[in-house]
Design a protein around this nucleic acid. Sequence first.
DNA 1: AGATATATAGACCAAACGGTCTTAAAATGG
DNA 2: CCATTTTAAGACCGTTTGGTCTATATATCT
Lengths: 178, 178
Amino acid sequence: MNVFWTRGYHATALPDLLRATKLSRGSLYAAFGDKHSLFLRALDRYIADALARMDVEFAPDREPIDGLRAYFAGYVERNSGANGRRGCLLVATAMELAGRDADVDRRIGSFFKAMEGRVTGALSRAKAAGKLADGVEPSSAARIIICFVEGMRVVGKTAPTRIISQATVDALLDRFIR
Amino acid sequence: MNVFWTRGYHATALPDLLRATKLSRGSLYAAFGDKHSLFLRALDRYIADALARMDVEFAPDREPIDGLRAYFAGYVERNSGANGRRGCLLVATAMELAGRDADVDRRIGSFFKAMEGRVTGALSRAKAAGKLADGVEPSSAARIIICFVEGMRVVGKTAPTRIISQATVDALLDRFIR
DNA sequence: AGATATATAGACCAAACGGTCTTAAAATGG
DNA sequence: CCATTTTAAGACCGTTTGGTCTATATATCT
């Protein structure tokens, strides 16, 4: 996963994977099939990690606004310095492979859907608690937020400063909460 | 440019470029040097086109809010249907090559800076004209908007419907204008 | 028309690609 | 301690990669 993450799918060669897994060529093929299958498994793990993180952040017994803040804080962290420069496997994969690889399409599409559902849920609970600014509609606000955080991952590839990222997410949240 | 745009840098092979340019191998190398130089020229054109478009949208004699609407409308258009699935050469390049290619780094970085400057300018003029909502600060709002539109290009790779994109940009703009 | 410059097609190159297979070494089980 | 299975190392395969070079054809110019 780490190799695909830092290099991208096409730029990752078999020797890179052998070095990272400390496996021989034969063992790697016996264990994972081909490069494409291995990549899919790496992507699945990346997605599972991300969803698990969000399930903690947006846990139903938590204040939804706090959850949103934690969610944003995670993106600030992942977007700063070396983390930022490394980028996001999911975004990189979407740009590199989506539309040309049906297996990837399904995964990317369902991930964004899952994320949208979770953010919408948190915003709905916040709205029910009267914490949202006037006129904010949970589902469209969720779509805004998702585009925003994924865009951070793009911009963060070249301009990763924590202070600015933090200020930017704060300014966005300010537009949505009361 | 079109070939790199639809396939990405690594996935583009010499024969693809020969077919697209209708040049022979020798002629292509005589004209452009190597693959990397040709890619840089393609990227430069893509960036120049984008900046030229923004110079029209954010022309100083135009209502800044109208400019912003036109700017968003362009992203909705580029993000819908086949255009959306095709994606954005700049975003794809940022994810694929930034951090590993100094020539690319410079171009991506300066593009985002240029875009941020233009959006900030439009927002400042809007603020001066009293058209911005209370508490909206042009420079941080510009950073939000840039992350948002670049994120659209990512999400749009798999979920490109015009109606939703339009509704989402409208909802975002609503948070910023009076 | 004839000399010169330019562009073409494509043979050719070494290196690297993803993937398979054989052989030897290391664990493992009774 | 021997027989069996599992693992490792790496030779090997055909294909494709980015890049060069030569021979031929096509313009161009006086």
